[in-house]
Every structure is written in C-alpha cells, then in structure tokens.
C-alpha cells in the first residue's frame, strides 16, 4: 500500500441510496477528495451497482444494471465508493456476476480499482483529518460489508481516532449487524425490526451525541429507528462528519 499516492483523478460512484436520499454524503465525499488535491469525476450515467437484485436472487436483472455501470469508468482511475456494501458488490461480486460472460474481463479490471471511501482516504491518501470542531462524543457503527466483506472497518476508526476533540464510545454488540440487509428488511421485516430495535438501544445507551458510519444503508435503518422511537443521536456519514470537523462548523 503506497501512502504517497500518485493518483491525480478518481471516479466517484455515488450509489443509488446516496443519490436519492443522502446526497450530502456524496457531496462531502467529493469535497474531501478535492480538498486533498484529487480531481473527482462523477460519471452522470451511473445509477446502481445492482446489489439489491443480486442479493434478492435476481441475478440477470442485477447483471443488466451492473453492466451499464461498467461503461462509466473507462480510464484507469481508482473508483471511490462512499459505501462499503456497494464497494463490496463491485469489488467481489461483479467478477462473479460476469463470470463466463463477455464483460468478465472488464468487470475484473474495474473491481481491481474499487475502493471504499475510508479505505481510499487512509490507504491511498494517508489522509490526516483536521479537527476544528467543538469537543463531542460519537459512536461508530461499521457496516457488515466494511467489517467482513471488505475488511476495512479499522479505517473509519483510525480517521475518527485522529480527531482531537472527538471522543469515541463503544456500544454493546458493536460488530453485530443492524438488521438492514437490503431486501432482508422487507422479506423478513419482523426479524430485521428486532435487530434494529436492539441496535438502536445499544447505541443510545452509550450516550453518544452522534452515530457515524461509512454506510448510508445502516444509517437509514438505525436513524429511522431512532426517529420512530423519538430519541437517539444524530446520524451522519463519515464523509460529512470529517468535512464538518475540518471546517469547524
């Protein structure tokens, strides 16, 4: 892993969830990268990595949507994704999805340059977070994809740990799934509901002022539970949090 990157440009793959529901997380990702001197390209033809259909057992639909994305990254720049679950889909499942298919080679090639945002910041940019904010207490929830599929959950810990005015508190059962799981939340709503209810309670018990994650799916799930229950910390994507701390606002 080179800490002194020679990257001049990166592609940002914004993800469908961020596009429609959390665009501020996407813009913050772009701004963080730009502030670090990287030229960010946002291919306008992008939509979704195909994960929702893939995880529901509809692989041909997933493949068609994923295929459209392959055209978005023609140059050899890194593809930065502000979501570990979408990055995991692109890095690990695109090759599988296109196996034996005319796009197999392309899928492999793109997969090899996919980075989850915090992974990119730490591994490629050696990003040193700046903290101009007031002192605060946060809890971190890493997505299952960040923890296990991508194995990058230590990067968000490192980034938040580098903020001098921020204290990290740890919730019980920290590495356990929040219960989102894409269409799992729809197909098994009661189990998913039990999981998120307990996850929300364990985070609330820490007394943290904010919950930070690298995945908006988890934040939508846990944050939705906080709102429903009428109490809980504010939820924020790591990109927005880092940007806000560096601006001191």
């Amino acid at each position: 892993m080179s800490n002194q990157t020679t990257d001049t440009h990166v592609y940002l793959f914004g993800t469908c969830l961020i596009d429609l529901l959390y665009p501020d997380a996407g813009m913050a990702s772009i701004e963080l990268l730009q502030n670090a001197g990287i030229q960010v390209i946002f291919p306008p033809a992008q939509s979704c990595c195909g994960q929702p259909a893939f995880n529901s057992g509809f692989r041909s639909e997933a493949r068609e949507v994923a295929r459209k994305q392959l055209d978005c990254f023609p140059k050899s720049y890194p593809v930065v994704v502000p979501s570990a679950s979408c990055a995991g889909m692109m890095k690990h499942h695109w090759p599988e999805l296109f196996e034996g298919n005319r796009d197999e080679e392309r899928a492999y090639e793109i997969a090899s340059r996919v980075y989850e945002l915090t992974e990119y910041l730490v591994d490629r940019l050696d990003y040193q977070p700046v903290d101009k904010g007031e002192s605060t207490t946060v809890a971190i929830h890493s997505s299952c994809s960040a923890l296990r599929e991508m194995g990058v959950a230590d990067r968000i810990e490192k980034l938040v740990g580098g903020l001098q005015q921020v204290t990290c508190v740890e919730q019980a059962y920290k590495s356990e799934c929040c219960g989102f799981g894409g269409t799992f939340a729809v197909k098994q709503p009661e189990i998913s509901g039990a999981m998120v209810t307990e996850k929300a309670a364990s985070i609330r018990d820490t007394g943290a002022e904010r919950l930070i994650s690298q995945d908006c799916g988890c934040l939508m799930n846990i944050g939705g539970a906080f709102e429903k229950q009428g109490e809980g910390p504010e939820c924020q994507h790591i990109a927005e949090f880092l940007l806000e701390r560096s601006n001191g606002s």
Partner: peptide
Amino acid sequence: YRKAPKPAARSLHAMA
C-alpha cells in the same frame, strides 16, 4: 420499527 426515509431536495446527480 422505523420512520420512512424521505428523498432529498436534490439528488447527488443534480448537486454534482
């Protein structure tokens, strides 16, 4: 178990 998420005022595509 949760409040429904609301679409943002502008998409990331539009903001970018």
